[in-house]
Design a protein around this nucleic acid. Structure first.
Length: 291
DNA sequence: GTCCATGTTCTTTA
DNA sequence: CTAAAGAACATGGA
């Protein structure tokens, strides 16, 4: 479900409800969906109830693909949705329980008014809730936000490696927020072949790429993200950005720019969609070409 | 039964 | 040593 635009949509749909509310009860159905300090799959898990009960949610924001909650004791916790995670906000009256619900926080307003449930469900269980004690930042291991960094910074980061650009864009320590959909869409918008080696990108290429990433993400955020199958925001609304996909999920269909059939290849063990005409493997350059 | 999936960490290889 | 490639995780749908 979740890349930067979808996570932003979830945050946006929660913002009217959560800040200022107090966590009254915590129901955690399995320990191993939560962990301490860092995202881990082999951790035995932790009990969130003792850490969260009685706390007030100060603020809520997105960082990379993380949904970060700031608490009144200066601790944080974040939800990472993994592949199939889902956060739902519901007034306590109607509880339509999804299967695979692992955590339910009951929250109410300052005077006990306006109660509601925030529930986390995740069939595949790749998602996690990560708790950070006061003083520890929730994003120490993340690269910069695409909208925050300067092109020169991205260029410097890309020059440190020789990976295919697609692999680099998926690396959350290099740049936070892109996943398989928006990496492919951004590379198409920038007319860069996904197997292009990062260290061969020149300054103008990187400026072009960063601009393409920002355009792509902005448009996706405006559309509420991409719903391929299951994704919904916390109010249950799907995203509408798939209609605007140029390459992702469009193998064999015409490129919106040049009408050539979209192809898929494997890069960094992920299915990778691109237009062989708009994104040539050897871009024609002045002077000699490299291979 | 097979293959594939919006993600990340851990392990192995080069 | 470091960087890159591969395996593993868990569930469901085509």
């Amino acid at each position: 479900m979740p890349e930067l635009p979808e996570v932003q949509a979830v945050v946006n749909s929660l913002l009217p409800h959560l800040p200022g509310r107090r966590i009254l009860t915590v129901i955690q159905h399995r320990a191993d969906i939560a962990c301490l300090h860092k995202f881990s799959r082999r951790s035995k898990g932790i009990d969130l109830a003792e850490l969260l009960t009685g706390r007030t949610v100060r603020s809520l924001f997105r960082r990379g693909k993380r949904i970060v909650f700031e608490l009144d004791d200066k601790a944080h916790f974040y939800v990472h949705l993994g592949m199939t995670g889902h956060l739902a906000w519901a007034a306590t009256v109607a509880k339509a329980k999804r299967p695979h619900t692992h955590l339910v926080l009951n929250l109410s307003g300052v005077d006990g008014h306006d109660p509601g449930d925030l529930s986390f469900s995740d069939p595949r269980r790749f998602g996690r809730v990560v708790y950070l004690p006061p003083g520890l930042p929730p994003d120490a291991d993340l690269g910069p936000e695409p909208f925050d960094l300067a092109p020169e910074d991205l260029h410097a980061r890309l020059r440190r490696t020789r990976r295919p650009i697609k692999a680099a864009l998926l690396d959350q320590t290099l740049l936070a927020g892109l996943g398989n959909i928006y990496a492919d869409e951004s590379l198409h918008a920038a007319r860069i072949h996904p197997r292009r080696r990062t260290h061969t990108l020149r300054r103008a290429d990187v400026e072009n790429l960063l601009a393409a990433i920002r355009r792509t993400l902005s448009a996706a955020i405006a559309a509420g993200g991409s719903t391929l199958r299951d994704y919904r925001d916390a109010a249950g609304n799907p995203g509408r950005y798939v209609e605007q996909h140029a390459v992702y999920g469009r193998r064999g269909r015409p490129c919106p720019t040049c009408s050539s059939p979209i192809r898929t290849i494997a890069v960094a063990q992920r299915s990778t969609h691109f237009c062989p005409v708009c994104q040539p493997a050897q871009p024609r350059r002045r002077g000699r070409q490299n291979g």
